[in-house]
Simulated assay, not measured.
Amino acid sequence: MNAFFETRDDALTCVVSEGLTFPMHLHPQLELFFVLSGETSVTVRHETRTLGPGSLAVIFPNQIHSYTACSKETRAALVVCDLALTGGFSDTLLLWHPANPFLPPEALHPNVAFAVGELTAERRGGGDRAVCSALVQLALARVLPQLSLHRNRASDYSELTYQIAQYVSAHFREPLTLDALARALGVSRFHLSHVFSEKIGQSFSSYLASIRVDCACALLAGTNRSVTEIAAESGFESQRSFFRAFGARCGMTPLAYRRRAQGTQAKT
Results as ranks from 00 to 15, higher is better:
Leu144Phe: 03
Ala134Leu: 14
Leu135Ile: 11
Ala221Thr: 07
His194Lys: 15
Val227Trp: 06
Glu237His: 05
Ala165Ser: 14
Ala209Trp: 01
Ser188Lys: 11
Glu159Trp: 10
Ala165Asn: 13
Asp214Met: 00
Leu140Phe: 03
His191Gln: 14
Ala170Thr: 02
Arg151His: 12
Leu138Tyr: 03
Arg173Asp: 05
Ser234Phe: 04
Leu160Pro: 04
Cys132Arg: 12
Ser234Arg: 03
Ser205Arg: 06
Asp179His: 11
Arg225His: 08
Gly201Cys: 05
Asp156Glu: 12
Tyr157Cys: 05
Gln137Asp: 09
Leu147Thr: 10
Gln166Glu: 15
Gln202Lys: 11
Ser158Lys: 13
Phe172Asn: 02
Cys217Arg: 11
Glu229Thr: 13
Ser155Leu: 07
Val136Asp: 12
Ala134Cys: 07
Gln146Lys: 15
His194Cys: 05
Val143Phe: 05
Val213Pro: 03
Leu220Ser: 07
Glu174Trp: 00
Ser158Asn: 07
Ala170Leu: 13
Leu138Phe: 02
Asn152His: 13
Arg212Asp: 01
His150Leu: 12
Asn224Glu: 10
Ser193Thr: 09
Ile164Gln: 00
Gln202Met: 11
Cys217Tyr: 06
Gly235Arg: 00
Glu237Asn: 05
His194Ala: 12
Val168Asp: 00
Val168Lys: 03
Ser193Met: 07
Ser234Met: 04
Ser205Met: 00
Ala218Lys: 10
Glu159Gln: 14
Phe236Ile: 07
Arg183Asp: 14
